[in-house]
């Protein structure tokens, strides 16, 4: 039976989960700015240190983003190190998909719903992606994207959507055509590591493993708003 360790640190929540012998264990805390420290404390509570293979782990899953840049790097660096030291593969799961999966498990949306998973991306923008559930697993319909809420575009065939996640506060600014299609909303959801695991297991079965070197954040926002010399208007 497959054993998975999962780490999710992309939002103000930080969680580490373990799936072994068909059982889930998880540590979860909302601890802004303390992830780098807490993630190892959580690991310590779930497993003794040392070779993860000896403790029945076959792969390490991580929330690869989008989300807080620093948070994404904490998960990626931690998984790089754990996977490298233990000679294990990694599984990259979208944080937005994980969040949709958390909403499903918590009963905030039902299995037939179309989910608009959103995260606050700061500077008045949101990260978003649309999912439906197939056999209980969040399956990407569109996105992920970063944009101002007023710029959000949805696939034409999504008649009614459930919006989940911290980006929800900004939904008041959605274009009217989109806003009227959002029927229910759950802003309080935060992605949890244990909900990465069903998605990671499906990826494992499809052979979508990464080597430790391939473990990288998916930032989605790739322009970092920093002016190049040529744009700084300086005489050289």
């Amino acid at each position: 039976m497959t054993g998975i360790l999962a780490i999710e640190t992309a939002t103000e929540a930080c969680s580490v989960a373990l799936f072994r012998d068909g059982h889930y264990m998880q540590r979860h805390a909302v601890a802004p700015r303390r992830h780098s420290h807490i993630v190892f404390a959580m690991l310590q509570e779930l497993l003794p240190s040392g070779d993860l293979r000896r403790h029945g782990i076959n792969a390490i899953a991580y929330g690869c983003g989008p989300g807080s840049f620093t948070g994404l790097r904490i998960a990626a660096s931690a998984v790089q190190g754990l996977a490298y030291a233990s000679g294990l593969p990694a599984l990259a799961v979208s944080t937005l998909a994980g969040q949709a999966q958390t909403a499903l498990r918590s009963g905030l949306v039902d299995g037939g719903a179309t989910v608009l998973s959103v995260l606050d991306a700061r500077i008045d923008e949101i990260y978003s992606a649309v999912y439906t559930f197939e056999e209980g697993l969040a399956t990407l319909r569109s996105g992920p994207a970063v944009c101002a809420p007023g710029q959000l575009e949805l696939p034409a065939d999504c008649a009614s959507l459930c919006a989940v996640g911290s980006g929800y506060q900004l939904l008041a600014e959605l274009p009217p055509g989109v806003r009227t299609r959002v029927t229910t909303a759950a802003a309080q959801v935060l992605p949890e590591a244990r909900d990465l695991i069903p998605l990671a297991l499906a990826q494992w079965r499809r052979g979508e493993q990464q080597s430790p070197q391939q473990v990288q954040p998916v930032y989605v926002r790739n322009d970092v708003r920093w002016k190049k010399l040529a744009e700084q208007g300086k005489r050289s």
Binding site: F40, S49, G50, S77, G81
Partner: peptide, 10 residues
């Protein structure tokens, strides 16, 4: 973070 994770695994 990388250092701590490697140290953990080894």
């Amino acid at each position: 973070t990388l250092a701590r994770a490697l140290a953990w695994g080894w």
